[in-house]
Each structure stands twice: as C-alpha cells, then as structure tokens.
Amino acid sequence: MKRVQICADDYGFDAAVSQGILDGIDAGRLSATSCMVLSPAWAQWAPALRERAGAADVGLHLDVNEFAGYARRSLSGWIAAAYLGAIARRDADAWVASQLDAFEATLGRAPDYLDGHQHVHQLPVLREAVVAALARRYGRGCALRNTRARRWRGPKAAVIAALGAGRLQGLAQAQGLAMNRDFAGVYDFGPEARFGELVAAWLAGLPDGGLLMTHPGRAGGTETRADPIRAARVREHAFWLSTEAGELLARQGVQLGLCADWR
C-alpha cells in the first residue's frame, strides 16, 4: 500500500466547482482541496469545509491572476514580471499575508498547506514571500506543494516544474517545510484526453507521499467568472465518483494520503 494525496484545486471558484469537490470528498476519493479565498463565492462555501473537518486537508490556493484585485496580468504576464524583477517584494508579502489572513478568518485555523493557482507560488519573489510567511506564521506546521515530478510526465509538466520548483524546494528545505515527494496531474484538459487512463498511469508512477492534482466540478453555469476548463472538470468529476475510480485505487493499493505523510 502507498499513500497518495489526491488534491482538488480551485475550491470556492463557484458553486459548481465547490459542490463537485465536496462530492469527491464525501465519496472518499479526494483527500485535499485548495481554496480560492478571494473568490466572491468563497464565504458561501467555506462552512461546508468546516463541517467536514478531518475528512480532507484544506489548503490555500494562492491567487494573483484570477480573483485578485491586482490580477491585471495574464499568467504569462505574471511569469514575465516575476522573472524580469517587476514584482515588488513588499507587494508580494502583502498579497500572501492578506490571503492567509482571509483563510484563517473564515475557517478559524491555519491552512494545512499552500499551493498556487496555476502554480504562481513558485515564481520568483512570490516564492520567497510564501516561504517567509509560512515559516514566520506557522513554523513547520504548514506544508507546501512541490510541482517537480520525479519522472517524465510530458512537456507541459516539465515546463511547469522549470518555472521554479527547484528553487522553491531549496527555500522550503532551508525552513524545514514539508513538501510532497512527487507530483502528477498535469495534462491539457482537452476533450480527447482519456482521464481514467491518465489517472491510472499517474498513480502507478507516484510513490508513497506523492500528490495527484485534479480539477473536478459539477456541470452548470458560473456565478463568478468564465471557466475555460468547465468541460474537463465535469469529466474529472464523473471519473472520481465512478466505480472505476474506486476499483483503480484498490487495484493499485492506493490509500488517500495527507500532508502529514510528507513530514
């Protein structure tokens, strides 16, 4: 048996995404979810996580490019700004602190871990602000997502890791912050993707203490903002609630893991 954290990103994005993630937690197929505390839907959906305390890890999904008032850049614009030195450290410190404050104020506790919407937490300046804030506020009590895969999982996954995983890992290790031992779940969200087959391959390759990222959600419109991956979310949601998913986990000897497994 091995323990793998299966983490649903984007909780709080809207009602369809949030309810879809709760479905997966309640079915025993998800063991973590990452929260978008700047979304206008967050306050409505946060109580459901308090009601499920202990059922899954709950983390902060650091957001600078979706619901943030400072989200005036595209993802590529944020990447460029980070690497060109166009993000002020004092601004990054304030953004991280305000989102951690919002998480704590709503859920009444610290996050179990922190990651980033579209992995922005590993970009220059943002990563330094993140690690400093976690160490200062929680000591070693809050884990951190590592996007580095230990084996080849495609060019998109390699690009994501190259944008800062190595440097973030070094900073985290210096502060004694726990990180997942491997990372999977990256694909193009296209309709041709056979999600069940992808999950089977990812789980087969992940070690104990690994992390599988997923983006399930229910069908339906959104009350917040356009969701370009809605169709993929619906397919992922259907898979995780299927008999196929349960049989796959059992066949591969996978137990749902938590951040505590990374320490």
Rank of each mutant, 00 (worst) to 15 (best):
G59F: 13
G77H: 03
Y138A: 11
W152C: 00
D57L: 02
G77V: 07
C142T: 14
G190L: 06
S242I: 02
A162T: 05
F67H: 15
E128F: 01
Y113V: 12
S39E: 00
E192D: 11
H121M: 07
H119C: 05
E192S: 14
Q252N: 09
P228E: 06
H117F: 02
A226S: 10
W240D: 05
R3I: 05
P155T: 08
L134N: 05
P111W: 10
A15C: 12
L62V: 07
G166D: 08
P47F: 12
Y113M: 13
R109S: 14
G176V: 01
L75K: 13
S34L: 04
I6Q: 01
A250N: 09
Q252W: 10
D93W: 00
G28C: 11
V37H: 12
R167A: 11
A43I: 14
S18F: 11
T106N: 09
Y138F: 15
G190H: 10
R167M: 04
V186N: 10
L22G: 11
E223M: 08
A102I: 01
L171G: 06
L126H: 02
L114V: 15
G196M: 01
L168A: 01
R263F: 14
Y138I: 00
D26V: 04
H61Y: 02
L168S: 01
D63L: 09
L100E: 02
G253R: 13
P216D: 03
A158G: 08
L30Q: 09
A132M: 05
R230N: 09
E51K: 15
V131S: 01
V17G: 04
A178Q: 03
G253W: 15
G116M: 04
W202H: 12
A41W: 03
L22D: 08
V125I: 14
L100G: 01
Y11H: 07
A161C: 06
